[in-house]
Structures are given as C-alpha cells and as structure tokens.
Computed example of a mutant assay.
Amino acid sequence: NDPVQPQVSVPLSCNGIDSSLDITPSPVALPTTRVGEPVDATIALSNTGAAPMTLKDVSLSGTGITMTSGPPQGMMLGPSASTNVAVHFAATEGGDSGATLVVSYDGQARSARITARALATSMALTPDGEVDFGPVCIGKRKTQSFTLIANDLGAFKLASISDPGPPFMLSAPTLPLSVLGSGATQVQFQISAAPSGPGVATAEVVVRTDIPGRSDHPLQLSVLGVPAGVAATPDMIDLGSNPVNTTTLGQEVHLSNCGTAALGFSNARIEGGDALDFAIVQQPSSSMIEPAGMASWLIVLQAHKVGVKQSTFKVDYDGGTASVALQGEGLGDLGRGTGRGSYYACAAGRPAALWPVAIALLVLRRRRARASA
C-alpha cells in the first residue's frame, strides 16, 4: 500500500530438469576388414540428463550394415543409465558401406553415421597350377623359382608351404610372414627336382594362407628322370584333334645329354607318311648340348585332310639318332574324324550322338527351302 512504490518486482530463477541423449562413439568408423571377415560393434546410448527419458524408436538404414540388437520401443532410460545397440558389417564384397543410426526420444532425435570398408584379398603365384620340371638327368638338379604376391587390396598371412618330399626339395623364407596388398610384398621361394631314378615322379605342394575361404592353394609338381646317355623325350606327343587347315598349339620335344661330354646334334626333321602335316616351328639356338643339358624343338600340326595323322620327329646326334612319335587328327564338318575320341565326339557323349544334330540341321534346311519357295 506504498503510494510511492505500489509494485515491487522480484526476480525468480530455477534449474530445469531435462533428459539428454549421448551416442558413443559418434560417428562410428568400423575397423577395415577383408571380404569374408565380418565385423561386429557395440554403440552405447546414454542418458546424460537429470530426468528419465523414453526411447521411442531406434532404427538403422543403409547398405551392408545391419542392427542385430537394440532397446525395445518405449524403453525408459533413467538419468546416467545406458543401453546398447549392436551392429553387424557382413563384408560380403569389397568396397565401402555406410548406414545411419537414428534414435527418437522425448520428442527429439539424434543420429550417428556408421562407415565400414572391406578389402578384397587374393593371391597370385608364378608359376602356378601344374609345374613340369621336364626331363632332368638322374643325379642332377633343376631349380624353379616361384613368386607370390597379394594381387588385390587386402593383405594376408603366408602361413606355410608344405614339403613335397623326394625327389623335390623346398627352399623358403621363415614363415609365417605378412604379405601386403596391391603387390607391395613379393615372396620368393624355390623348389628343386633331383630325380634318383628313371621315369616320372610327381608330388603336391600346398601353399597355406589366411585368405578367407581360400586358405589352401595346391601346386602339382612333376619331373622326368633321364638315365645316363642320350634320350629324346617324351616318347610320343599327341597334338589332339583340330579342324583341317587349322594350326594346333605347339608341343615341345627334347633331346637330353646325360653324358659327361658336350654333345653335337644336327638334321632335325619329321619323317613318315603324314610328315607334311607336322612342322617344326622353333629350333634350338645352338647345335651343342652341354653335359646335363638339353635342346628343345616346338612341333605343331596342321592337318590338310580328315583323319588320324602319324609321323616321327628325328634328330641326329654324335653316335646315333633319337626319335619321338607324333600323332594328331584332322576334323571335318561337325568335327567328324575317325572316332579316336575327338573333342566334338566327347562333347556329344559319343560319335553316334551327332546324328540328332545332323537331322535337326537337315529339317531346318528343308523348312527354309519351303519358306523361300
């Protein structure tokens, strides 16, 4: 009732109680992995406020990344309380993937970006597959070097290289070791062949890595032991079945000197009834073979008529003549040959199976003739 100051203003203040959501970590960068090695991660949702919160919805959208578990809709989260979201990166193919985690609560929403990367991993080995050491004199040794790299982005661990056993010997670096991606690391190892007897010897070598889904990589080894003296190998080459007037892939014949002195040779030739269908397309650069050495010739077939072709490769050397039998086949229309088991006959199951094909072509021709008439 003070007439001078009838009203008095009193300032008021208060500390409001509210909820606050924290996503940890945010953003989420999953560790880089390799194709075939999935990655799982946990993301924490924490109420850092002083009031309880209601988690209305937790969702994840994107490619390659999925949510495997999370809080139920409407979950109450008290002050300082937390819950988890589990995510899974399948890593089924190489490249980058991304997704967004969205959490709705108390009329608000928070989000976090999730990124992941998978690197493709593969191994290149040179030489690979079937490795033929060729003819080697008994008591002598031939060594083949191998180069191994990671020819994709992902690295891998070279765990072991198995011992092939006699007559083969392995020389490799200390294992295991890491092989970096994109060819950044080159691993060298050697395998030697030292036959102790005549004939063909074979063995398998297994290169073991930790590449997902492709841990074991086999190599097939072979060597031909050649006794003392002079020998032509192999005994026979079959150049296969090929359409007439078409040149086959070449195959090699060898003359090995398993003596103690250098050996001269000359007059390499092809003899026999079908000699004109075969040809020597590559000759040795020298006419001498050192002890434990060999000379090689490359032979091809170009049959000019349908049928089996047979001839003989011969070469003279100091003290004698060596020979290798040659064989092949010329094929005509629809691969018709002489029934020696050509590719075309095998593809149909047997030569008689070509009859339905011939009949079908005949019917088709007659239909076309009637249509044109």
Rank of each mutant, 00 (worst) to 15 (best):
F265P: 09
D274N: 12
G293F: 05
I237M: 11
I237Q: 01
A279S: 14
L263D: 04
T247C: 01
Q282N: 15
P284C: 05
T233I: 01
T247L: 01
L255P: 00
H304I: 10
P227K: 11
H304S: 14
T246D: 07
T248A: 01
D274W: 05
E271V: 15
H254Q: 12
T246F: 06
A295H: 07
E252L: 13
A268T: 08
A228R: 13
G272W: 10
I289F: 03
R269P: 08
S241E: 11
M294H: 13
V253D: 00
T233S: 04
P243T: 09
M288Q: 14
D235E: 14
L255E: 00
Q302M: 08
D277G: 12
I280R: 02
P234G: 10
L239M: 06
S287V: 08
A303R: 00
V244H: 03
N242T: 15
C258R: 08
N267H: 12
N245F: 13
T248Q: 07
Q302S: 11
M288C: 07
A292H: 08
D238I: 07
L298E: 02
H254K: 09
V281T: 13
I237S: 02
I280Q: 02
V281I: 15
S266G: 11
S296A: 15
P227H: 10
S287D: 15
T246W: 04
P234Y: 11
A231L: 14
N257L: 01
S266N: 12
G307M: 02
N242F: 05
T248F: 05
R269N: 12
G240S: 06
S266C: 09
M288P: 01
V244T: 14
N257E: 04
Q283R: 11
V281L: 09
G250F: 04
S241W: 08
P243Q: 06
G240P: 00
L263P: 00
C258D: 02
V244Y: 04
L249W: 09
V306M: 03
L239P: 01
W297V: 03
A268Y: 03
I280S: 06
S256N: 05
Q302N: 10
G240R: 04
L298G: 01
I270S: 07
A303M: 07
S256K: 07
S296G: 09
K305Q: 15
T260M: 12
T260V: 14
N245G: 05
